[in-house]
């Protein structure tokens, strides 16, 4: 499978994260509630005018944690992945996540905010799960984690598009990011399906039919047996009269 579309579209994910930071920082008084940028990143609270000063560090913090989580997810995929799509996408995520984290730190520092460099507890839980796996099982879980990150980024971009407060520039960036994310989505779905990690469409778990009778089996057998005896007895009695 070609991994070029994946590499191209990873930039879309990163662009979305950057976009979130840009929109939030540009309009701290009117920014809409933002969904988490990556799995588990706390949602940015709505920035009410009265507490805009408190909300902005929270938004920056969420974006910074999101970037740290992406970098950690990427590094794990690059080092532990057994399939080429996981290793390739992992390397790209690690590089871009690190660059974004640095960028977010600069933005935050300019506003007198210090960002932590650790993933959120939810992201740490995801990483701990991945670190307990190896081989094919690692790739399966990693691809699903990347899929979650992609979905979160898509949700974020769509939230920007739906926001009446977002600038035209921000909306154009969101549209461009969505196009790239769609390309990533297609590649990621193909890799996920190849790894047997797609969400199952159905579960067929019974071919005998014995359980259909299940708990009622004894009742049914007793009723049929009693019915047959009673009818047989009635016929015999009628003949003998």
């Amino acid at each position: 499978m070609s991994t070029r579309p994946i590499r191209q579209a990873v930039a879309g994910t990163i662009a979305c994260l950057a976009l979130l930071g840009a929109v939030s920082c540009a309009n701290p008084q009117t920014a809409p509630p933002l969904p988490p940028a990556v799995p588990g990143a706390p949602a940015a609270p709505p920035a009410a005018p009265a507490d805009a000063g408190d909300a902005q560090p929270a938004v920056l913090g969420a974006a910074g944690q999101g970037a740290a989580g992406l970098a950690a997810l990427g590094a794990l995929g690059a080092s532990n992945g057994v399939g080429a799509p996981v290793r390739d996408l992992g390397s790209q995520l690690a590089e871009d996540g690190k660059a974004l984290a640095e960028q977010m730190n600069e933005v935050a520092a300019a506003q007198g905010v210090t960002l932590g460099d650790q993933p959120s507890s939810e992201q740490q839980a995801m990483l701990a799960d991945l670190q307990s796996r190896s081989g094919e099982q690692f790739d399966q879980a990693w691809l699903r984690a990347a899929g979650e990150a992609l979905q979160q980024a898509r949700d974020a971009a769509n939230a920007v598009l739906a926001s009446p407060d977002a600038t035209e520039e921000a909306k154009a960036a969101a549209r461009a990011a969505l196009a790239k994310l769609d390309a990533l989505g297609a590649s990621l779905r193909q890799a996920t399906a190849s790894a047997g990690a797609s969400t199952p469409a159905q579960v067929d778990a019974g071919t005998g039919g014995q359980a259909a009778l299940g708990d009622q089996a004894l009742t049914v057998i007793a009723l049929l047996t009693a019915g047959a005896f009673l009818l047989g007895g009635a016929l015999w009695r009628r003949r003998s009269i």
Partner: peptide, 9 residues
């Protein structure tokens, strides 16, 4: 007897 048997069946 016949009625009961038929009902059981």
């Amino acid at each position: 007897q016949a009625g009961t048997g038929a009902a059981c069946l």
